[in-house]
Simulated assay, not measured.
Amino acid sequence: MALRPPVQPMLAQAVETIPPPGVLRDPAYEQKFDGHRMLVFTPTGPGGRVLLQTRRGALVQDRFPDLVAAAQQLPDGLVLDGEALVWDPEAGALSFEGLQRRAAARARTAPALAARLPAYYVAFDILQADGTELLTLPYRERRRRLEVLFSARALTAPWSLCPMTTDVVKAREWLESWTDVSGVEGLVVKGMSQRYLPNYRGWSKIRRRDTTEAVIGAITGTLTRPQLLILGRRDHTGRLRAVGRTVPLRPEQSRQVAEQLTAAEPGHPWEGVRFAASWGSRDVLDATLVRPDSVAEISVDRSIDRGGVYRHPLRFQRLRLDVEVVDVPAFGQGPAAAAG
């Protein structure tokens, strides 16, 4: 039977590094894009319509009329798995914030928004062709059919084939250099012989991480036992702007940080500010302001919004007692190299 939404996509588990040779048989490496997971369904018969499904099963084709229109390039009875991205012409770069706006658009405003922030689709798997389900085929065969589809149909924007290699040296090069490109945040590792297993974490994902600095402006917990850090950087006017929060500190990290914390004095730049528990969340942290004179070295990934805020929790590495607040990278500089 032909696949119909909702189809639960196959998932990836996060790992720190590219698995060493021998851990995974016949590995393949794909570039990981910072977008929204999306399945594309083309009609299986007369009167059908193009459907776009999110990772959680919601149908959002009314929010992406440009992708629906472009699906005329695709054959009937097709199901693709991939990432939706959005290009911001003003910034000249891919925009996750723009993608969020597109994903939240209402049907009546979606066409105008699509004209300003066009969507693109990076396909990395094919789950059905000509109405025939392909889930039990090994990845190498599904990839071959996906490549044939792009070649035979001469597919052009907004459709793009996800770059893939079986060369681990090239994959490492991608992780180091391609992640400097806006919208590319790491790698996904798959087995060439793997079947497509819905809702199963059978792939691995590696995000590039960099080391940088930020100012400790607030904490959760207490001054003697901080639980996590809320970090900031100064903008061009000198104002301290929040850039993110860390994951919970380990006990030894908490003791190390507590030795340097001082309660905030009146006039702290974050007085009255409420901090979200996570990027895009409405939950608020119970934060305690501290004097913003300590610098933390942190490990960060490449998921950062246009304004300079990290979307994923940061990892505290150590205090930088040798670095002054004025030496910390400015707000909006992203994962700049560590100072000193």
Results as ranks from 00 to 15, higher is better:
residue 100 Q to R: 09
residue 101 R to P: 02
residue 101 R to Q: 14
residue 101 R to L: 10
residue 102 R to S: 02
residue 102 R to M: 04
residue 103 A to D: 07
residue 103 A to R: 10
residue 104 A to K: 15
residue 104 A to L: 13
residue 105 A to I: 01
residue 105 A to L: 02
residue 105 A to M: 02
residue 105 A to Y: 01
residue 105 A to V: 04
residue 105 A to W: 00
residue 106 R to G: 06
residue 106 R to V: 02
residue 108 R to L: 13
residue 108 R to W: 09
residue 109 T to C: 04
residue 109 T to W: 03
residue 109 T to I: 06
residue 109 T to F: 04
residue 110 A to S: 09
residue 110 A to T: 00
residue 110 A to N: 02
residue 110 A to W: 01
residue 110 A to F: 01
residue 111 P to C: 01
residue 112 A to N: 12
residue 112 A to D: 15
residue 113 L to E: 05
residue 113 L to D: 02
residue 113 L to W: 03
residue 114 A to E: 02
residue 114 A to L: 02
residue 114 A to W: 01
residue 114 A to C: 12
residue 114 A to K: 00
residue 114 A to I: 00
residue 115 A to I: 03
residue 115 A to Y: 04
residue 116 R to V: 14
residue 116 R to I: 11
residue 117 L to H: 10
residue 117 L to C: 11
residue 119 A to L: 01
residue 119 A to Q: 02
residue 119 A to T: 03
residue 119 A to G: 04
residue 120 Y to H: 10
residue 120 Y to F: 13
residue 120 Y to W: 10
residue 121 Y to N: 00
residue 121 Y to S: 01
residue 122 V to W: 04
residue 122 V to P: 01
residue 123 A to R: 01
residue 123 A to C: 03
residue 123 A to W: 00
residue 123 A to N: 01
residue 123 A to D: 00
residue 124 F to I: 00
residue 124 F to H: 08
residue 124 F to M: 00
residue 125 D to N: 09
residue 126 I to Y: 06
residue 126 I to G: 08
residue 129 A to H: 11
residue 129 A to Y: 09
residue 130 D to S: 10
residue 130 D to R: 14
residue 130 D to V: 03
residue 130 D to M: 03
residue 130 D to Q: 13
residue 130 D to W: 05
residue 131 G to C: 14
residue 131 G to Q: 12
residue 132 T to M: 05
residue 132 T to D: 04
residue 132 T to H: 10
residue 132 T to E: 10
residue 133 E to F: 00
residue 133 E to K: 06
residue 134 L to C: 07
residue 135 L to D: 06
residue 135 L to K: 05
residue 135 L to A: 06
residue 136 T to S: 15
residue 136 T to D: 15
residue 136 T to L: 08
residue 137 L to P: 12
residue 137 L to H: 11
residue 137 L to R: 14
residue 138 P to K: 09
residue 138 P to V: 08
residue 138 P to C: 08
residue 138 P to N: 09
residue 139 Y to R: 12
residue 139 Y to C: 13
residue 139 Y to N: 08
residue 139 Y to H: 13
residue 140 R to M: 11
residue 140 R to S: 13
residue 141 E to P: 07
residue 142 R to E: 09
residue 142 R to Y: 15
residue 142 R to C: 11
residue 142 R to H: 11
residue 143 R to M: 04
residue 143 R to E: 06
residue 145 R to P: 06
residue 146 L to M: 07
residue 147 E to A: 15
residue 148 V to K: 13
residue 148 V to A: 14
residue 149 L to W: 07
residue 150 F to Q: 03
residue 150 F to G: 04
residue 151 S to D: 12
residue 151 S to V: 07
residue 152 A to F: 08
residue 152 A to T: 13
residue 153 R to S: 10
residue 153 R to F: 12
residue 154 A to K: 10
residue 154 A to S: 11
residue 154 A to D: 08
residue 155 L to N: 04
residue 155 L to A: 05
residue 156 T to S: 15
residue 157 A to K: 07
residue 157 A to V: 08
residue 158 P to W: 06
residue 158 P to K: 09
residue 158 P to R: 09
residue 159 W to H: 01
residue 159 W to I: 01
